[in-house]
Computed example of a mutant assay.
Amino acid sequence: MAARIDLTLDCADAQLLAAFWKSALGYVDEPPPAPFRTREEWLARFDLSEDESADDGAWLHDPDGVGPRLCILKVPEPKTAKNRLHIDIRVPGRGGPGERWARVKAECERLVRAGGVVLAEVAEHHVVMADPEGNEFCVAAAPA
Score class of each variant (00 low, 15 high):
residue 1 M to P: 14
residue 2 A to C: 07
residue 5 I to G: 05
residue 7 L to D: 05
residue 8 T to W: 01
residue 8 T to D: 07
residue 9 L to N: 06
residue 11 C to P: 09
residue 13 D to T: 02
residue 13 D to S: 03
residue 13 D to A: 04
residue 14 A to I: 04
residue 15 Q to M: 03
residue 15 Q to F: 01
residue 15 Q to C: 02
residue 16 L to Q: 14
residue 17 L to H: 00
residue 17 L to V: 00
residue 17 L to I: 00
residue 18 A to M: 03
residue 18 A to K: 03
residue 20 F to M: 12
residue 24 A to W: 00
residue 25 L to Q: 01
residue 26 G to I: 11
residue 27 Y to S: 03
residue 27 Y to V: 05
residue 28 V to A: 08
residue 29 D to T: 08
residue 31 P to I: 05
residue 31 P to M: 01
residue 31 P to G: 12
residue 31 P to R: 06
residue 32 P to C: 02
residue 33 P to I: 02
residue 34 A to L: 01
residue 35 P to E: 00
residue 35 P to C: 03
residue 35 P to N: 01
residue 38 T to H: 05
residue 38 T to K: 01
residue 38 T to M: 00
residue 38 T to A: 01
residue 39 R to S: 09
residue 40 E to V: 11
residue 41 E to W: 01
residue 41 E to S: 05
residue 43 L to I: 02
residue 44 A to G: 10
residue 44 A to M: 02
residue 45 R to M: 08
residue 45 R to G: 15
residue 47 D to I: 00
residue 47 D to F: 01
residue 50 E to T: 00
residue 50 E to F: 03
residue 52 E to Q: 05
residue 55 D to M: 10
residue 55 D to P: 09
residue 56 D to G: 15
residue 57 G to D: 02
residue 57 G to R: 10
residue 58 A to E: 02
residue 59 W to N: 05
residue 59 W to C: 01
residue 61 H to A: 13
residue 61 H to I: 01
residue 62 D to M: 09
residue 62 D to C: 13
residue 64 D to V: 12
residue 66 V to C: 07
residue 67 G to I: 12
residue 68 P to G: 12
residue 68 P to E: 07
residue 70 L to S: 06
residue 73 L to G: 04
residue 73 L to Y: 07
residue 74 K to L: 03
residue 75 V to L: 04
residue 78 P to M: 10
residue 80 T to A: 04
residue 81 A to C: 11
residue 83 N to T: 15
residue 83 N to C: 13
residue 85 L to P: 05
residue 86 H to W: 12
residue 86 H to R: 14
residue 87 I to T: 14
residue 87 I to S: 12
residue 88 D to L: 13
residue 91 V to W: 11
residue 92 P to Q: 10
residue 92 P to K: 06
residue 92 P to E: 13
residue 93 G to F: 08
residue 94 R to H: 14
residue 95 G to S: 12
residue 95 G to P: 08
residue 96 G to H: 09
residue 98 G to E: 13
residue 100 R to G: 11
residue 101 W to F: 06
residue 101 W to N: 03
residue 101 W to C: 06
residue 102 A to R: 13
residue 103 R to D: 07
residue 103 R to K: 10
residue 106 A to M: 07
residue 107 E to W: 05
residue 107 E to H: 14
residue 109 E to S: 09
residue 110 R to C: 09
residue 110 R to S: 08
residue 111 L to A: 07
residue 111 L to Q: 08
residue 115 G to W: 08
residue 115 G to H: 08
residue 116 G to C: 06
residue 116 G to D: 07
residue 116 G to Q: 08
residue 117 V to K: 13
residue 117 V to S: 14
residue 118 V to E: 15
residue 118 V to D: 12
residue 118 V to T: 15
residue 118 V to K: 15
residue 119 L to Q: 15
residue 119 L to I: 13
residue 120 A to K: 15
residue 121 E to C: 15
residue 122 V to F: 15
residue 123 A to C: 13
residue 123 A to P: 15
residue 125 H to S: 15
residue 126 H to E: 14
residue 128 V to W: 12
residue 128 V to A: 11
residue 129 M to F: 03
residue 130 A to C: 08
residue 132 P to C: 03
residue 132 P to E: 04
residue 133 E to K: 01
residue 134 G to Q: 09
residue 135 N to D: 06
residue 135 N to F: 09
residue 135 N to R: 15
residue 136 E to P: 02
residue 137 F to N: 06
residue 137 F to S: 01
residue 137 F to I: 02
residue 139 V to E: 07
residue 140 A to D: 13
residue 142 A to E: 07
residue 142 A to C: 04
residue 142 A to R: 13
residue 144 A to L: 07
residue 144 A to P: 12
residue 144 A to F: 04
